[in-house]
Simulated scan of single mutants.
Amino acid sequence: MSSTIELIVSAYVRLKNRRALEDMRELRRQLLGNLHSTSSIDPRKALDLVREDLRVIEEGLEQLRPPPGTLPENEWH
């Protein structure tokens, strides 16, 4: 069964919406930083979930990566 994040990433990949995936990745990275700096709760489960989201998002971005030699590398990032 697919997780919600997998369904969202899959939709953005089908739409070739790299910007949306990059935005999702940035938000997850910010969340990771916030969770690492918290001391009021045990963030382990949340950290694992966010890391899994990032893994799925990165896989989606890889699917949208242009073939080697078709686009200058600096235009991809």
Rank of each mutant, 00 (worst) to 15 (best):
D53T: 01
L54P: 01
E73R: 12
K45Y: 02
P66V: 13
Q63V: 09
I41S: 06
G60Y: 01
P67E: 15
D53C: 04
T70R: 09
L47V: 12
G33E: 14
D48E: 14
H36R: 06
M24P: 00
M24F: 06
I57D: 00
Q30L: 13
Q63R: 11
R29I: 03
P72H: 06
E58W: 05
R55I: 02
L64Y: 03
R29A: 02
T70M: 08
L32W: 02
E22S: 10
E62Y: 11
A46P: 04
E22H: 04
G33I: 11
R29Q: 12
D42N: 15
L47H: 01
T70V: 10
L31Q: 04
E58Y: 03
E75V: 09
T38C: 03
R55N: 14
R44D: 13
K45P: 02
T38N: 02
E22P: 03
R55G: 09
L71Q: 05
R28L: 06
H36F: 01
N74E: 12
T38E: 08
R44L: 13
Q30T: 13
E59D: 15
L54I: 14
T38I: 07
R44C: 05
T38L: 10
G60F: 02
P43C: 09
L61I: 10
V50G: 00
S37Q: 09
V56E: 07
I41L: 11
L71R: 06
R44N: 14
L61A: 05
L47C: 05
E26T: 00
G60R: 00
R28S: 13
S37D: 11
R28K: 15
E58I: 14
D53L: 01
D42S: 12
E26C: 00
R44Q: 13
I41G: 01
D53Q: 10
G33F: 06
G69R: 14
L31P: 00
P43G: 11
G60T: 02
L47S: 03
D42Q: 15
N34T: 07
Q30K: 13
G33C: 07
E59K: 11
P72V: 03
R44E: 14
E59V: 09
L54R: 00
P68Y: 09
D23E: 14
R44P: 03
L32Q: 07
L61E: 05
E59A: 10
I57P: 00
Q30W: 07
L27T: 10
D23A: 08
G33M: 13
R25H: 08
L27Q: 15
R29V: 02
E75T: 06
P67Y: 07
R51P: 05
E59F: 03
P43F: 05
I57E: 01
L64S: 07
D48L: 15
S40N: 07
M24L: 11
D23I: 08
R55V: 11
E26R: 01
R51E: 15
M24T: 01
P66K: 15
G69C: 06
E62N: 12
N34P: 00
S39T: 15
E59S: 14
L49W: 01
I57H: 02
G69N: 11
R55C: 05
R44H: 10
E73T: 12
K45Q: 04
P72S: 03
E52A: 12
M24C: 04
R55A: 10
L35D: 03
E59G: 10
E73P: 08
M24R: 01
L31G: 00
R28C: 12
M24K: 06
G33L: 13
L27D: 13
E52F: 14
G69V: 02
L32Y: 04
K45E: 06
